[in-house]
Design a protein around this nucleic acid. Structure first.
Lengths: 111, 111
DNA sequence: ATTGTATTTAACGCATCAGTTAAATAACGG
DNA sequence: CCGTTATTTAACTGATGCGTTAAATACAAT
């Protein structure tokens, strides 16, 4: 995958397991074993998903004794929202309706 | 990659070339050759990027004689924004400040 | 019919991803 | 020190991603 920040973020979000991990973390910090519990995959697999999320900046991790707890990080999500902003006029229904309205007004002016 | 809609969308957005194509399309429809022009990669490669974007629903395509023009589609971007909503409290600075404020208030009440 | 232009499909190479099991590392608790 | 628990690293596998070139397809124009 490309190594720029947005690609890392989108790439991390492209996997359902990783999105589920983020969803779980949105309810609070958790250890690797806790995060792995709902899934039918091995701990090393979870461990690497966490690494992907960490590289994308979507989580941060800290060490408590032998446990490594993960927590959700906000910044990259804000980056995604900022990126989406560029396309607001394409997905914001209100804005689309406004544009259509203005278009109609202009046509009426011309006729 | 997983085949659910969100994975397809995020996966499509994870590539810089595809994001550049979307950016170009936000200025208006374009043919494959036009879209390929800024890049140093072959037409078949572009063709497949377009297929990925189409599968994700991010573009639609139509045929005009021997040209296939692509146009940006809004719906999946709206899906992404809806997804981000779940995490609003983590990326919305205003909301974070409000939460911090309420937390402080509560601490003051206790002391 | 033939040639030219636009695009896709096929076949391939190489790198990366997502999973596995087995072994290594880290830290705790007796 | 030793065993247990938590997690990561290593080595491997199969699938997928992204690029290539060559061939096929679709349509236009003469």
């Amino acid at each position: 995958m490309a190594t720029d920040q947005l690609s890392l973020i989108f790439g991390a979000l492209a996997d359902p397991t990783r999105r589920a991990i983020l969803a779980r973390l949105s309810e609070g910090e958790a250890t690797v074993t806790e995060l792995a519990e709902p899934f039918d995959i091995s701990l090393p697999a979870i461990s690497r998903h966490l690494k992907v999320l960490e590289t994308a900046g979507l989580i941060s991790r800290s060490r408590n004794a032998q446990w490594r707890t993960s927590r959700l990080e906000a910044a990259p999500l804000r980056d995604v929202v900022a990126y989406m902003e560029k396309y607001r006029r394409f997905w914001d229904e209100r804005l689309v309706r406004l544009e259509q309205h203005l278009e109609r007004m202009q046509q009426e002016d011309q006729s």
